[in-house]
């Protein structure tokens, strides 16, 4: 183990160069944020992930953001354990009827100013699960959504550029 750590230190990081902010994302977000919120948030955002009914594919790629290749934290973004500590809710899945209350209460527990980022095709409008008795629709059916990152699931690099756009907007 120590040998690997030493070798890793010599070799330098395996982290890839980060993407620029998603173009559409910056405009979309900047227009929604008032100046006060921007000053308060600075360049650092805390994210709370909420699975509101996903197939867990989106979670796998969100997880990947924490690996050494994407290394989310270098952008001032980090995952937190409680909505009370969060600025951003990252929500996946079609919202199931059984998760509707929990999602709303998580959002309600998140202090203002806050953003909601809906991740994946399901979170937009229910995706393939549209029309089922078991779901209430996309995330916007329950809470206001600020940014949507498409894909099934979105690649980590797309998640990253969407989130970087958020930080840019907050600057």
């Amino acid at each position: 183990m120590l040998k690997t750590i030493a070798r890793n230190l010599m070799r330098g990081p395996r982290t890839m160069t980060g993407p620029g902010p998603a173009e559409a994302g910056v405009e979309e977000l900047a227009s929604r944020l008032d100046r006060a919120a921007r000053t308060r948030l600075g360049r650092s955002l805390s994210i709370r992930e909420v699975d509101a009914g996903s197939c867990n594919g989106c979670e796998l790629e969100i997880h990947a953001l924490n690996n050494v290749v994407y290394d989310l934290e270098r952008f001032g973004l980090r995952f937190v354990a409680s909505p009370r500590h969060a600025d951003v809710l990252l929500v996946t899945g079609p919202v199931t009827g059984n998760m509707r209350d929990a999602l709303f209460r998580t959002w309600d527990a998140t202090p203002d100013p806050k953003w909601v980022v809906a991740v994946g095709g399901c979170a937009l409008d229910g995706g393939l699960f549209k029309g089922s008795y078991g779901i209430v629709g996309g995330v916007a059916a329950v809470i206001p959504v600020d940014l949507h990152i498409p894909g099934c699931p979105p690649r980590p690099i797309d998640l990253l550029s969407g989130l970087v756009a958020l930080v840019e907007a907050a600057k």
């Binding site: 699975d51 009914g53 996903s54 899945g93 079609p94 199931t96 009827g97 059984n98 998760m99 929990a102 393939l128 699960f129 029309g131 089922s132 008795y133 078991g134 779901i135």
Partner: peptide, 11 residues
């Protein structure tokens, strides 16, 4: 459990 029940079998 059951929170992520999406009605897949019905669909």
């Amino acid at each position: 459990l059951g929170y992520v029940h999406k009605g897949t079998e019905w669909l």
